[in-house]
Simulated scan of single mutants.
Amino acid sequence: MRIWTCLFLITAFLSCKEDEKPVKTKITSVEIEEIYSNSALSIRAIDIASDKSIAFAANEGAFGLYNPQTEQWITGKQDYDSLNLEFRAVARTLNDFFMLSVASPALLFKTGEYGTMEVVYKEDHEKAFYDAMTFWNAQEGIAMGDPTDDCMSVIITRDGGETWNKVPCDKLPKIKEGEAAFAASNTNIAIVGNRTWIATGGKTSRILFSEDKGMSWQVFDTPMINGEGTTGTYSIDFYDENKGFAIGGDYTKPDDTKANKMRTADGGKTWQLVSDGAEPGYRSCVQYVPNSDGKALVAVGIQGIDYSIDSGDTWQHLSDEGFHTIRFLNENVAYAAGQGRIAKITFK
């Protein structure tokens, strides 16, 4: 286990909020600047904290933190017994760094007292496979994964990540046959205030919803493509309590464009297909552009970067460069990660 006691010190001086500006009404191109490269890594989990630092975790036990103002990286490699750890979920609060491994045993690491990464949750189950993690606030966080019983796996912390407890299945909606989730981009969970949405996929693709930070749950059906183990919703985002968007498809058929994009205007209770039969096809991540009134969206995947200015009705293909996941720093700059790299994306 590598000690990195200075992990968070480099970001202490960063400002917590930038002046808000309206999003550009028309984007015609992107500038892609690679800021991290490691050909051995497939990076599907990144997060941006309120201090603007960028965290990532990946396969080979790799993880790191980037300060965009100093352009400095602190990276590490996490060991646990003889396991070759793969991380597809990461979260960053102002004070702590969290990363969650896939497969069994599921291991959730948190920054320890002396800067090391310490296990705060472990789950030994042959079906354990966690897909995404995020926080409501500095004290309360949530992670979700594939079912090990007759419900989706959901774990929650209420003490800043020191302890995590699995929500019992009698508190969650029962799964349908073949329902699971995809660890494609760490965006299976969306949060606005106390409200939380979780996207499932596979032979059934639905939305789990909680209005009280995971204390109670409902489930809503969707028109997203389903029926196979590789179909369904791969990513979900909400602009506010009502406006939400989800994207997916079938990663084995990335050119298919039917029933892979959907939108809600009532907080996820009902969903409507948009741009049905039109590009883009399969994408692993979608995010709202900040300060866009819920009209501007960016989607990324192995076949490139796409942009919508009309809430997803039509899309413009901006780049063929493939990424797994993306997060916005502000309305004009985002960070994206994919095979072997992390890049700064400037929208022009």
Score class of each variant (00 low, 15 high):
I175E: 08
I175S: 06
K176S: 14
E177S: 14
E177D: 15
E177F: 11
E177G: 08
G178Y: 06
G178I: 13
G178D: 08
E179Y: 07
E179K: 10
E179D: 06
E179P: 09
A180Y: 00
A180S: 15
F182H: 05
F182W: 07
F182Y: 02
A183N: 03
A183F: 01
A184C: 12
A184V: 09
A184T: 05
S185W: 03
S185Y: 03
S185C: 11
S185R: 06
S185M: 08
N186Y: 06
N186W: 09
N186R: 08
T187H: 10
N188S: 13
N188F: 05
I189H: 01
A190V: 08
A190H: 04
A190E: 06
A190K: 01
A190Q: 08
A190Y: 03
I191G: 01
I191A: 09
I191T: 10
I191D: 02
V192M: 02
V192D: 02
G193P: 07
N194A: 13
N194T: 13
N194K: 13
N194Q: 10
R195G: 04
R195K: 15
R195F: 06
R195I: 11
T196E: 12
T196P: 01
T196G: 06
T196H: 06
T196D: 04
W197M: 11
W197R: 05
W197C: 07
I198H: 05
A199E: 03
A199T: 02
A199H: 03
A199P: 01
T200H: 04
T200K: 04
G201Y: 06
G202N: 09
G202E: 09
G202M: 10
G202L: 08
G202I: 12
K203A: 12
T204P: 00
T204D: 06
T204E: 11
T204I: 13
T204V: 15
R206G: 00
R206E: 13
R206S: 07
R206W: 10
I207H: 00
I207D: 02
I207M: 07
I207Q: 05
I207N: 01
L208P: 00
L208M: 09
F209Y: 15
F209T: 11
F209W: 06
S210P: 05
E211V: 03
D212N: 15
D212M: 14
D212F: 10
D212C: 13
D212K: 12
D212W: 11
